[in-house]
Computed example of a mutant assay.
Amino acid sequence: MRRADRLFQIVQYLRGGRLLTAKTLADRLEVSERTIYRDIADLIGSGVPIDGEAGVGYLMREGYDLPPLMFNRKEITALVAGARMLRAWGGSEMALAAEEALAKIEAVLPEDARRRADEVQIFAPNPFWFSDDERKVIDRVEKAVERNQKLVLHYEKEDGTPSVRTVRPLGLWFWGKVWTLVGWCELRENFRMFRLDRMNRIEESDPFKPERGKTLADFYVIRNREC
């Protein structure tokens, strides 16, 4: 969790008006008590009205709220529509994260802006052919991209021929119905794109370090030249 997200969560927990110990906050946020003490001190230093002390607990004085986020109508529409699309088409963890992010934003929106968010008439119905297993594949591949972890793909090519590839996963592309993985294929020693719905099995392999000529930025350079 990013530090900014953790500070936000601490404020949200303390807004409940109950006395919370550093240990309770540390357990909820999966960090050390020392980290909580440091975060609380920084929040107090920035003007957040938190009362309490180490070993006793902390609470927030009534009347404090986070400053309202100011979004115009088009920005609110984009945020709500984007979250709904991820809920419909993203991986399970992506969908949950989008929903939680939207809830956080709505919690600090002024009343009129919150009402506009509820009135957004853009929807993304869940596709009946998009299974939970496919969502889990998206999550696994996305984690491998984030962690720079090679994947061994048991893959079915367009003509139905099976293939096994060791790939450096670099990024995910969504085409409106199909997700594809952009990666460096160690068999072909070149960039390749793999459809996630043709991956019969995935195995996590060794971590890798980005190398010149094998990064997503290099892929974009080559693609732009071809276009």
Score class of each variant (00 low, 15 high):
residue 19 L to Y: 02
residue 83 A to P: 12
residue 202 I to Q: 09
residue 57 G to N: 11
residue 68 P to T: 08
residue 125 P to L: 06
residue 82 G to Y: 09
residue 62 E to C: 13
residue 27 D to N: 12
residue 83 A to C: 12
residue 186 E to K: 01
residue 221 V to T: 09
residue 93 E to N: 11
residue 9 Q to N: 07
residue 52 G to K: 00
residue 135 R to S: 08
residue 223 R to A: 12
residue 209 K to I: 12
residue 19 L to A: 10
residue 158 E to D: 14
residue 126 N to W: 01
residue 213 G to W: 01
residue 79 L to H: 02
residue 211 E to C: 15
residue 121 Q to G: 00
residue 164 V to L: 07
residue 15 R to H: 04
residue 5 D to F: 03
residue 4 A to R: 04
residue 203 E to H: 11
residue 222 I to M: 07
residue 186 E to C: 03
residue 40 I to G: 02
residue 72 N to K: 12
residue 16 G to F: 01
residue 112 D to G: 13
residue 124 A to S: 13
residue 166 T to M: 14
residue 119 E to P: 14
residue 163 S to E: 05
residue 99 E to T: 04
residue 34 R to W: 01
residue 128 F to E: 15
residue 87 R to F: 03
residue 223 R to L: 14
residue 124 A to D: 01
residue 91 G to N: 07
residue 219 F to A: 05
residue 205 S to R: 03
residue 10 I to T: 04
residue 42 D to F: 10
residue 124 A to Q: 05
residue 171 G to C: 10
residue 23 K to L: 09
residue 106 E to L: 13
residue 101 A to W: 00
residue 67 P to G: 11
residue 26 A to N: 06
residue 19 L to I: 12
residue 44 I to V: 14
residue 58 Y to F: 15
residue 156 E to F: 09
residue 201 R to Q: 10
residue 22 A to M: 08
residue 126 N to E: 09
residue 2 R to I: 04
residue 119 E to F: 09
residue 218 D to T: 13
residue 25 L to P: 08
residue 74 K to I: 07
residue 46 S to C: 10
residue 130 F to I: 01
residue 95 A to R: 03
residue 52 G to I: 02
residue 14 L to C: 08
residue 101 A to N: 14
residue 154 H to F: 03
residue 69 L to A: 10
residue 23 K to F: 01
residue 81 A to S: 14
residue 165 R to Q: 08
residue 224 N to M: 12
residue 111 E to F: 00
residue 63 G to N: 06
residue 69 L to W: 06
residue 67 P to K: 13
residue 43 L to V: 11
residue 163 S to I: 08
residue 162 P to K: 15
residue 210 P to F: 02
residue 126 N to Q: 13
residue 218 D to Q: 06
residue 157 K to S: 11
residue 94 M to G: 12
residue 58 Y to N: 11
residue 168 R to D: 06
residue 65 D to N: 05
residue 39 D to Y: 02
residue 179 W to Y: 03
residue 141 V to R: 07
residue 199 M to R: 02
residue 188 R to A: 14
residue 70 M to V: 14
residue 128 F to G: 12
residue 90 G to L: 09
residue 55 G to P: 08
residue 114 R to M: 02
residue 54 A to L: 09
residue 159 D to K: 10
residue 152 V to G: 03
residue 47 G to Q: 08
